[in-house]
């Protein structure tokens, strides 16, 4: 169920649906780890940045798994269910995260099971996504708080619905047994038809992700960066006590030692700016592009990248490959 949804919608239609309507997205490639045991939440809290111990059943939050150098191992979504945690990882890191948790489990009561291939994760994204779910079941998806999740029947499929806003706009991940993926997909498309639902490709989702400044693993997230550089200070609790990397992260914050910042970028669509391209200022390297795309329709180039702190202000003009004018349009500094 990791194959991409077939779509007949144009990229402009998909983009429009994701930004102002509703689109169906297959996110089955993300890792899903079921973590059981009475010490599960405590262990994850000791390994990551956010105040996970505050989580009540039915709630969730994102947290940054950090190395002892305060670098990003992955950004996890932790959903607390009654008898276990469901941990969503980036597609490339599910095994690494499972091994990381196993390495740090000594005498604790914690068991990690990779349920990625046993389950499918279809998602509805866009401002009208909640309306589709509200019409299908007795739940009120629109009323769910971020990372709140419930079990509900969608057509003939029993599924978990979690509000995760993964593109930065309203979005719901729907997790069901892999065997029911096709039925769930058809049910969601039928229910969304009156609202003009589109099936969106990963490329279409990627454009909106970049527009909304949501960092992705392997691009903006990884062990080259720390959570403060990546604009993830909102996922860091400075009062929860020790976790791996805490001393480094706290020192960087206290003494304002963050050297580079994640920023949103824009350039003329005619320029050839790709991820990995260096950004220069006055002949010196000022940063690097980490994600790049073109907006459907206008063709304007948009991207994300890391630049030195002094160049992170909106309006800063940088030079891309071939002298392309690249402008910083916003900084995710908090």
């Amino acid at each position: 169920m990791n194959s991409e949804l077939k779509t007949e919608n144009t990229s402009a239609e998909q983009h429009g649906a994701l930004k102002s309507g509703v689109a169906l997205v297959d996110r089955s490639a993300l890792g899903r780890l079921a973590v059981k045991g009475k010490d599960a939440l405590d262990l994850l809290s000791r390994l990551s940045t956010n105040a996970l111990l505050d989580l009540a059943p039915g709630r969730g939050m994102q947290t940054v798994l950090t190395s002892n150098k305060g670098r990003i191992v992955d950004v996890l979504t932790v959903l607390r269910q009654d008898d276990r945690l469901l941990v969503l990882t980036s597609p490339a890191t599910r095994q690494k995260v499972a091994e990381w948790m196993d390495f740090y489990t000594f005498t604790e009561d914690v068991a990690v099971k990779d349920v990625t291939l046993d389950t499918a994760m279809l998602s509805l994204s866009g401002p009208r996504a909640g309306e589709v779910l509200d019409a299908m079941s007795c739940m009120s998806a629109s009323a769910l708080a971020p990372y709140e999740h419930v079990y509900t029947g969608l057509g003939d499929v029993e599924a978990m619905v979690a509000r995760t806003d993964f593109t930065g706009l309203p979005g719901f991940d729907i997790i069901a047994p892999a065997a029911h993926a096709e039925a769930l997909r058809n049910t969601l498309l039928s229910a969304g038809e009156p609202l003009g639902i589109a099936a969106a490709t990963q490329e279409a989702v990627e454009i909106v992700r970049i527009e909304r400044g949501v960092p992705a693993y392997g691009k903006e997230l990884g062990e080259d960066y720390n959570p403060l550089e990546a604009g993830l200070i909102g996922l860091v609790s400075f009062t929860k006590g020790c976790y791996i990397g805490q001393e480094v992260v706290t020192r960087l914050n206290t003494y304002q030692k963050v050297q580079k910042q994640l920023v949103a970028l824009r350039w003329d669509g005619a320029a050839d700016v790709q991820a990995g391209a260096p950004l220069m200022m006055d002949g010196k390297k000022a940063g690097v592009v980490t994600s790049a795309a073109r907006l459907p329709g206008s063709g304007t180039g948009i991207g994300l990248g890391y630049v030195r702190k002094a160049q992170a202000e909106a309006g800063t003009k940088l030079e891309g490959p071939g002298g392309a004018a690249v402008e910083v349009i916003s900084s995710f500094r908090q």
């Binding site: 262990l43 000791r46 002892n68 740090y104 000594f106 005498t107 020790c242 976790y243 791996i244 480094v248």
Partner: peptide
């Protein structure tokens, strides 16, 4: 005497008084 995951550097020491071994 033991170790558990966590603490700034990765692993934290554990000391506890117990009546019997596991």
């Amino acid at each position: 005497v033991g170790v558990k995951g966590g603490g700034c550097s990765g692993l934290t020491y554990v000391l506890d008084l117990v009546e019997a071994p596991n």
